[in-house]
């Protein structure tokens, strides 16, 4: 996954010559961006995600139809000038529903991913740095949580607490944080024995200070890639949930729900199913491409952490 480094020796040589390249962390953002933009797939990924966000925000301006307006007399229409992607069984405009449909998925996914990654990062770092019994305990509990298949765990939580967005965010956080903990802990453990951390420990710095000053800046790349990758899974998971009828509640426009609603009429109006499928797939594809691009730009091995 890493950029091929054709020859180590010249690389050393370049380091010996100490190039006066762009200094300071601000430069890092720029280098990352540049290397992202140089890679075609990564750019495409970022663009896809950006387009989806824009559509979700601007949906009311893009279509004259309300996504929940029933029109029984124009049900199950094929694509036409009035309804570009046709209508569904209740006569709702498919395109409008697809344009609005990203809102729920994007919002819930973003919130859930952010919570899971934040929680996972804190716990993972703490476990890695403190080590000892705390680490053992954390890993034990995590193993147990990881053992319960995510969909099952979500269904259990949704069954007992109901299917509100807040519950889903909470449930996804619980389900995915352990995986983030694993990844972050591994990354932090890679940093912890390095000499600059040792120097800080010998200086007698407090754990929090070591975490913030020495460890976090050096695993920021791993955490960011983790975020992008986790986001794609969360989108998939939440749409699966909607598909099963446990996510967005019926009149709400949501891709997973739409596929579920329209798949029985697939032979009649294929676009009612295909349109949300395309929307969902392009969003996840965009997130995946961005995660790959970020990982490549930073040399993070994202594949190793799959699932």
């Amino acid at each position: 996954m890493n950029e091929p480094n054709p020859a180590n020796e010249p690389a050393n040589e370049a380091a010996e010559a100490a190039p006066a390249a762009v200094a300071a962390p601000a430069g890092m953002v720029r280098t990352t961006l540049r290397s992202l933009l140089r890679s075609g797939p990564a750019t495409a990924g970022l663009v896809l995600v950006a387009v989806h966000v824009l559509i979700a925000v601007l949906a009311p301006l893009l279509t004259p139809y309300a996504p929940t307006a029933n029109a029984p007399d124009s049900a199950l229409l094929g694509p036409s000038a009035a309804h570009w992607a046709g209508t569904d069984a209740l006569g709702r405009d498919v395109l409008a529903r697809v344009l609005y449909g990203g809102r729920y998925a994007l919002m819930v996914s973003f919130a859930a991913t952010a919570c899971a990654v934040a929680l996972g990062t804190v716990v993972g770092c703490a476990a890695a740095l403190k080590g000892g019994w705390l680490d053992d305990l954390v890993m034990r509990v995590l193993d147990a949580v990881l053992a319960i298949p995510p969909i099952l765990a979500l269904l259990v939580v949704v069954t007992v607490l109901g299917a509100g967005p807040a519950v889903i965010v909470l449930a996804v956080t619980i389900v995915y944080a352990p995986q983030v903990v694993r990844v972050v802990r591994a990354a932090a453990m890679g940093v912890a024995p390095l000499d600059y951390v040792t120097a800080a420990r010998a200086r007698g710095e407090r754990t929090l200070s070591i975490l913030v000053r020495e460890v976090l800046p050096n695993i920021a790349d791993v955490v960011s890639v983790e975020f992008a990758m986790r986001a794609s899974w969360v989108v998939l998971l939440i749409s699966s949930l909607s598909f099963l009828g446990f996510g967005a509640n019926p009149p709400t426009p949501d891709w997973g729900l739409m596929i579920s609603e329209n798949r029985t009429a697939m032979t009649v109006v294929p676009w009612a199913s295909l349109a949300p499928i395309i929307a969902l797939a392009t969003l996840v594809l965009g997130l995946n491409l961005s995660a790959d691009g970020l990982a490549k730009a930073w040399g993070v091995d994202r594949v190793k952490e799959a699932r």
């Binding site: 890092m28 000499d195 120097a199 420990r201 010998a202 007698g204 000053r213 020495e214 800046p217 050096n218």
Partner: peptide
Amino acid sequence: ARKRPPELRRRIQLAFQNADTSLNPRRI
């Protein structure tokens, strides 16, 4: 180190073998 008084920690310092890992790569 944690149990030593700061003054004591200050008076004994460590320098490392590996130039690649002795400095935090994100700090000048």
